[in-house]
Design a protein around this nucleic acid. Structure first.
Lengths: 74, 74
DNA sequence: ATATCGCACAACGGATACGTTGTATTGAAG
DNA sequence: CTTCAATACAACGTATCCGTTGTGCGATAT
């Protein structure tokens, strides 16, 4: 699977979960000490986030990283 | 959970799986177009690998990233 | 003794992530 | 119409990743 597709997919999944939780990009960003633009780039698949970054996102969304990845295959 | 602990844990888990598969650091590295030192730093928890990097590692180990993360909690 | 293999650590450089600022668009609210 | 919230994109600087080279150390074998 191509790199860009992987990044797009996980970005989209993060967006879905964020919206399910009723959060804006800005709110999620501030929950984990980042800013809105960072979340935007992540959701758009424009960056290749680090493991720690993904853990922080999962934390802000109040789910586990496993949950996020599990939902990718579904 | 602290960043260093997270990196150490996933590094150790990757090492366990690599050894289960009977691979050396060098062999795993070459399977995915990297070098032995990169694997060493990853396993030692000295780097914060990107999502794509983790996908490549999982690929080289012939498991899914989900498998690796699943075994972290166990 | 020396060669080889697996693993560890340090340093350098190019590439990239990510925080920040600035700006544009869209839609809802007043 | 104006205002504000939410999202998107671009550019810049700093920090970090990761590939690479070189070095070392222990274990095993010849």
């Amino acid at each position: 699977m191509k790199k860009e597709e992987l990044l797009k997919k996980i970005g989209e999944q993060i967006r879905v979960i964020r919206i399910e939780k009723g959060l804006t990009q800005k709110q999620l960003a501030h929950l984990i000490g980042k800013d809105q633009q960072s979340i935007q780039r992540l959701e758009a698949g424009n960056i290749n986030p680090s493991y720690i970054y993904l853990c922080e996102i999962a934390n802000g969304l109040n789910v586990s990283l496993l949950d996020i990845l599990n939902r990718l295959s579904a």
